[in-house]
Amino acid sequence: MNQKTIQVEALESEAIYIFREVVAQFEKPVLLFSGGKDSITLVRLAQKAFFPAKIPFPLLHIDTGHNFPETIEFRDRLVKELGVDLIVRDVQDNINSGRVKEETGRYASRNMLQTETLLDAIEEFSFDACVGGARRDEEKARAKERIFSVRDDFGQWDEKNQRPEVFDMLNGRIDLGQNVRVFPISNWTELDVWSYIKKEDIEIPSIYFAHKRKTFLRDGFIWSADDAIVYRDKEEAVLERMVRFRTVGDMSCTAAVLSNAVDIAKVVEEIRDSSISERGARIDDKRSEAAMEKRKQQGYF
């Protein structure tokens, strides 16, 4: 046995505390897993919270069908290692059945459509707590999100009527039909997440590291030239560039950045020196300044 003293870092300790509250306060929690670095970090924190027991809730992936293939491979491997259940629900199903309409044109994306599929899944499984990897530093409207954020039957967020969160007491009391979105890494910044991934030596999908990719330019952003998924004008020329992604959401609305950071140490360095915020590379936030807030009121994560 080792003689060491442990001082758990404040942010990590807080996240673990939150996970344990989720399990103690809710009947059917679920972890929303996108395959991105934030949700992978959440998985590691959940492992830590309950070790040596397994993570005591399933993972839910709302699949836009626009994933980077690397993400899916990675997801399946991780789930197997952890021995947890993975639930996948496809946005495509709702499109096929005509419940939602696929966007068309230059800025078409399935980001909005995810909401409907998520709400359906919540109802199907009666989930009462959905744990997600949103961070308050991502975007201005998120800066005011609570750690336990109550949603009504329609998944709506009432930003003016949020429960005060004092000290570390988390009030998870809800009525039937309501559910709570939980954000254990609320207080982390992008750099905190990357530094943690490095420190913990956590494996992440390869698209986070610099690689050669066929891309084209639009509005000052670099897009993956995957014609099946990303709309491209004929004039928009394809070129091979050395890039990496900072988020791995829907391929059709996730821009790449030029990068030579081929490993985690270099990525951390690059983020530290970087001067474009992470969501700057997400086209759908640019549509309007109030975009995020509107989507959240409608139940978007």
Binding site: M1, N2, Q3, K4, T5, I6, Q7, V8, A10, E12, S13, E14, I16, Y17, R20, Q47, K48, A49, F51, P52
Partner: peptide, 18 residues
């Protein structure tokens, strides 16, 4: 015993989730 993830420790400090 005091555990943090897959390791055991002799002592844990104020503020640690263990």
């Amino acid at each position: 015993s005091i555990h943090f993830f897959n390791e055991a420790f002799a002592r844990a400090k104020n503020g640690s989730s263990v």
